[in-house]
C-alpha cells in the first residue's frame, strides 16, 4: 500500500483513534491517542490488510524547544531553498509538531509481506508521561522502551522491566530532554570536568 491508502485504511478502521495524519516526503504518519495505542498496534500487526510484522524503531522527541532555537537574525535569510526532487512525492507539507503535548513517542513499523512502512506518533503530556507498553505485541519494544524511559523519562505502562539501559542507575535526569544541558556530567568516580 502506498502512504495515502495506508492512512485512509487506518482512518476507516479507527475513525476516533487517528487524530491527524500526513505523508510528508512519502512517509505515512498517523497521530494516535494513547488510549487506543494497544488496540491499533494489535490490529496493525495482525490484520491481513496491514501485517506490520516489524516494530523497527521506537523513540521519542521532546518538542519543548521547538521553534525556540534562535538563529542569529543577521543570517536569517541565508540557507537553503527547498527544491523537492521529482522522485519524492511532496504533496503534503509537514503540519508541525503536535502541540501542546511536550513529548511524542514515535514508532516506525514495517510490513515484511506487504513492504510498506508506517510511522505512528503518540503525543504525551509532560505531567502524565505514560504510554501503554507495546511489549505484548512486539518483543523488540522491550529494550526500545527502556531506552526511551532512560533518555526521556516517559514511562511505559505494563513494561516488565522498566529500568535504565544506557545510563547508570545513579544518573539523575534524562539526558535527551531538551532541558538537560549537553555537558552536565555526573561522574561515578573522578572529578567533574
Amino acid at each position: 500500500m502506498n502512504a495515502a491508502s495506508l492512512i485512509q485504511a487506518l482512518r476507516d478502521r479507527f475513525p476516533h483513534a487517528v487524530q491527524a495524519a500526513h505523508s510528508y516526503r512519502g512517509d505515512a504518519t498517523v497521530l494516535i491517542g494513547r488510549e487506543s495505542l494497544l488496540e491499533v498496534a494489535r490490529t496493525l500487526k495482525e490484520d491481513p490488510a496491514f501485517q506490520m510484522s516489524f516494530l523497527m524503531d521506537l523513540t521519542a522527541v521532546d518538542f519543548s524547544a521547538y521553534g525556540k532555537k534562535r538563529s542569529p537574525a543577521f543570517f536569517a535569510h541565508s540557507g537553503v531553498a527547498v527544491k523537492p526532487s521529482p522522485e519524492i512525492p511532496d504533496e503534503e507539507p509537514w503540519p508541525g509538531p503536535p502541540a501542546p503535548a511536550r513529548f511524542v513517542v514515535v514508532c516506525h513499523l514495517f510490513s515484511l509481506p506487504l513492504k510498506h512502512r508506517l510511522r505512528i506518533e503518540i503525543p504525551v503530556e509532560e505531567a502524565d508521561a505514560e504510554v501503554d507498553s507495546l511489549t505484548s505485541v512486539w518483543a523488540s519494544a522491550n529494550w526500545l522502551e527502556r531506552e526511551v524511559w532512560d533518555m526521556f523519562g516517559i514511562r511505559f505502562h505494563g513494561h516488565p522491566n522498566l529500568k535504565r539501559i544506557l545510563m547508570y542507575d545513579e544518573f539523575v535526569g534524562h539526558p535527551l530532554r531538551k532541558d538537560y544541558p549537553v555537558n552536565k556530567r555526573q561522574p561515578l568516580i573522578g572529578p567533574i570536568n
Binding site: 539526558p175 544541558p181 549537553v182
Partner: peptide
C-alpha cells in the same frame, strides 16, 4: 565527545 556521558581524558582517573 564533550558531553554528559564521557570522561574527558582518562588522566582524570
Amino acid at each position: 565527545y564533550d558531553n554528559y556521558a564521557t570522561v574527558m581524558g582518562i588522566d582524570t582517573i
